[in-house]
C-alpha cells in the first residue's frame, strides 16, 4: 500500500495528552510573564547602573583597588592578588572550604544509606505478601493473605509518602527549619541535605528495584529464599545504577552545601553572607569563585567515578 506524504501526515499518531500539555504550557508561560511585575527597567535605571558600576569596580581585590587598579602606572601586580587570596584562605577560607566539602560528602553518604534502605519497602514488587512476582502475583491472591496484603500496602504507601514529603521540601528550607531549631552547627545542615536527598534516592532506588529483570529474583524466591535474602542477592546487580544516582546527587550536594552556609553554618556560604553584610564585594566574589571551583572539582570527581562504574 502506498501513501502520500500528506496521507502519512494526516494519519500520524497523535496524543491528546501531549497536545493539551503543550497548550497548557504555552498559556502558563504567557500568563506568568503578563501577570508579573517584570521589566527590563528593573535592571537598568540611572541609580541601578551607578550601583552596578560601583559593584563591578569593587569586585577587584581591595589592595588592587587601593593601588589604582590594573591600569598603567599602578603598582598592583599578580603578586598582590596572590597575597590577598592567600590571606583570605588562611583567614577561614580553607577551613570553610574543607567543612563545605565534608558536609556534602557526609550528607550524600547518609542520604544513600537511608534512601537505599527505604527503597525496598517503597518498591511495589517487594512490599507485598509474595515478593518479586512482578505484576499482580498469583500467590498474592489467596484469600488468607488479605490482611497481609493490606498491611504491606499500608507500609508501601506510607514509605512512599514520607519519601515524597522529604524531597518536596527544598534542602534550603529543611536547613532553615533545622538550623534555627537545633543551632548553628553543621549537624542540622547535614541532616537537611541528607533528608531531601534520601527522598530522591529512595524514589530512584525504588524505581530501579521495580525495573530490574524479574527472573533471578523469582527463581530465588521460588527456591525458598526470604525477602531479605533475595534482596541481598540481587543488590550487586543493581549497584552500578544506584552508584550513578548517588554520584549525581553528590554533585548537587556540593552545590547546596556552599549555599546552606548562608543560614549561619560554617561553610563557604557563611563567609559569603558575612562579606555581603560588610559590603566587602571583593571577598564575596572570591568566595563565590571558590565555591564554583569546589563544584567543578565535585563534578569532575563524579564524572571520573561514573566512568569507572559504567566500565565496571
Amino acid at each position: 500500500m502506498k501513501m502520500s506524504a500528506e496521507e502519512l501526515r494526516r494519519t500520524r499518531p497523535r496524543s491528546r495528552l501531549l497536545r493539551t500539555a503543550a497548550w497548557a504550557t504555552a498559556a502558563l508561560v504567557v500568563f506568568s510573564w503578563m501577570g508579573g511585575d517584570f521589566g527590563l527597567e528593573q535592571l537598568s535605571g540611572e541609580r541601578r547602573l551607578a550601583n552596578l558600576e560601583r559593584f563591578t569596580g569593587e569586585l577587584r581585590p581591595w589592595p588592587v583597588q587601593q593601588q589604582g587598579g590594573f591600569d598603567a602606572g599602578s603598582t598592583a601586580d599578580w603578586q598582590t592578588v596572590y597575597d590577598w587570596a592567600a590571606a583570605l584562605m588562611a583567614d577561614g577560607g580553607s577551613t570553610a572550604l574543607a567543612s563545605t566539602a565534608a558536609i556534602a560528602v557526609l550528607a550524600s553518604v547518609l542520604a544513600a544509606l537511608v534512601g537505599y534502605l527505604a527503597c525496598w519497602p517503597a518498591a511495589r514488587n517487594v512490599a507485598r505478601p509474595a515478593p518479586f512476582f512482578g505484576g499482580p502475583g498469583v500467590a498474592d491472591r489467596r484469600p488468607g493473605l488479605r490482611w497481609a496484603r493490606w498491611a504491606w500496602s499500608v507500609l508501601n504507601h506510607s514509605v512512599r509518602a514520607l519519601l515524597l514529603f522529604a524531597r518536596a521540601v527544598p534542602e534550603y528550607l529543611w536547613a532553615f527549619l533545622l538550623v534555627e531549631s537545633l543551632g548553628y552547627t553543621a549537624l542540622p545542615a547535614v541532616l537537611a541535605l541528607a533528608l531531601h536527598n534520601a527522598g530522591i534516592l529512595g524514589r530512584l532506588g525504588a524505581e530501579t528495584v521495580e525495573n530490574m529483570p524479574p527472573a533471578p529474583a523469582r527463581a530465588l524466591a521460588a527456591a525458598g529464599a526470604s525477602r531479605s535474602q533475595t534482596a541481598a542477592a540481587v543488590f550487586p546487580g543493581l549497584l552500578p545504577r544506584l552508584l550513578l544516582y548517588f554520584f549525581y546527587r553528590w554533585e548537587t550536594c556540593v552545590r547546596e552545601a556552599t549555599v546552606l552556609g548562608m543560614l549561619g553554618v560554617l561553610s563557604l556560604g557563611s563567609l559569603i553572607r558575612d562579606a555581603r553584610a560588610g559590603n566587602l564585594y571583593d571577598e564575596l566574589f572570591f568566595y563565590v569563585l571558590l565555591g564554583a571551583l569546589l563544584v567543578l572539582a565535585g563534578d569532575l570527581l563524579s564524572a571520573l567515578a561514573r566512568g569507572l562504574v559504567r566500565r565496571a
Binding site: S99, A102, L243, A312
Partner: peptide, 28 residues
C-alpha cells in the same frame, strides 16, 4: 564496584571525623 563503595564509605567517615573535630556535630 567494591573499591568505589569502599572509597565512598571512607570519605563519609573522614568527613564525619573532620566535622566533629571542628566541634560541628555536637548533639543539640
Amino acid at each position: 564496584r567494591r573499591a568505589v563503595v569502599g572509597a565512598i564509605a571512607a570519605a563519609g567517615l573522614a568527613s564525619a571525623a573532620l566535622l566533629s573535630a571542628q566541634g560541628q556535630l555536637a548533639l543539640p
